[in-house]
Design a protein around this nucleic acid. Structure first.
Length: 274
DNA sequence: GCCACTGTTAGCAT
DNA sequence: CATGCTAACAGTGG
């Protein structure tokens, strides 16, 4: 579930618990969670203190003393929870990290098991291809660089917004909401967008993501932050999940199509096909 | 029960 | 190289 606003909310929720805390013995309940790293690598984190928690795209980076970093990707159904050790853990909890002296533990819970954890060595080297190939951050990129992302690209604009190598952190919900706000049809060839349209798209992207972060993300199914609190941006969705509903701008019925196999919602009147 | 659907993306086919 | 499908998995709802 988590896209950029949800992951940002999670990271902010984790900081007070993790930063400065020491990590105890990891309990890896589902070993395949740990990707492309020998199982022993986890031991290198035990007894170390967390220095910083960061977000990059949809990934969570937990930096530790000694320069090592844990990288979490929640994929569709992953959650990171901070709970008391005595709180019951259900069968979907895949990893437990005790936080020494804080009467709390971090739990990675993931129903569909798509999520993963990677360990980065002290070299800070590139052991996570997904991390290295990631495009720029949508809230940091300036307009000129943003416009350049789409030059000479033959893909459709929605496909490219979802492509993490083009720009990082945008998923299906926010791609739909951003395009609606920008009055752009999802199937528009990216390279055909005029300067003015790109400017509106850039502004819409920033506005939607910032607003969603301020609402602590969208809780469509069971997304919660580390404290178990849901976001409420879903009540502000204009098109996502609203097939057949009225466009808030023109009252036309919202339409649903598939783009690259993903459900895509738009207003046929406000987002004209080119 | 069966089928379609789900917020992600790696890996493979084209 | 660029782009488009499908599968990985588990659960929910019709």
């Amino acid at each position: 579930m988590p896209e950029l606003p949800e992951v940002e909310t999670i990271v902010r929720g984790l900081r007070p618990y993790l930063e400065g805390a020491g990590m105890g013995t990891f309990r890896l309940l589902f070993p395949p969670l740990l990707r492309r790293a020998p199982g022993v690598a986890l031991a290198a984190f035990e007894g170390k203190k967390v220095t910083t928690v960061k977000r990059r795209g949809k990934m969570i980076l937990v930096e530790c003393e000694g320069g090592r970093t844990l990288v979490f990707h929640l994929k569709m159904t992953g959650q990171i929870l901070i709970e008391r050790p005595e709180a019951p853990a259900d069968k979907h909890v895949r990893l437990i990290v005790p936080l020494v002296g804080r009467d709390r533990e971090l739990r990675f819970r993931d129903i569909r098991k798509f999520g993963f954890l990677c360990c980065l060595g002290p070299s800070g080297s590139s052991q996570v291809p997904e991390l290295d190939a990631l495009g720029p951050e949508p809230l940091e990129i300036d307009f000129r660089s943003f416009a350049r992302l789409f030059q000479g690209r033959r893909g459709r604009i929605k496909s490219l917004l979802l492509d993490q190598r083009t720009i990082a952190g945008i998923g299906n919900i926010y791609a739909n909401e951003i395009l609606f706000r920008a009055w752009i049809h999802p199937l528009t060839p990216a390279a055909s967008l005029a300067e003015g349209e790109l400017k509106i798209l850039w502004k819409s992207m920033r506005a939607i993501l910032r607003l969603a972060i301020s609402r602590k993300g969208s809780s469509i199914r069971d997304y919660t932050d580390p404290n178990g609190d849901p976001g409420d941006f879903q009540v502000l969705h204009k098109v996502y999940g609203r097939e057949g509903g009225k466009c808030p701008r023109c009252k036309e019925a919202i339409r649903r199509i598939k783009v690259n196999g993903r459900s895509t919602f738009y207003c046929p009147h406000c987002q004209k096909k080119v």
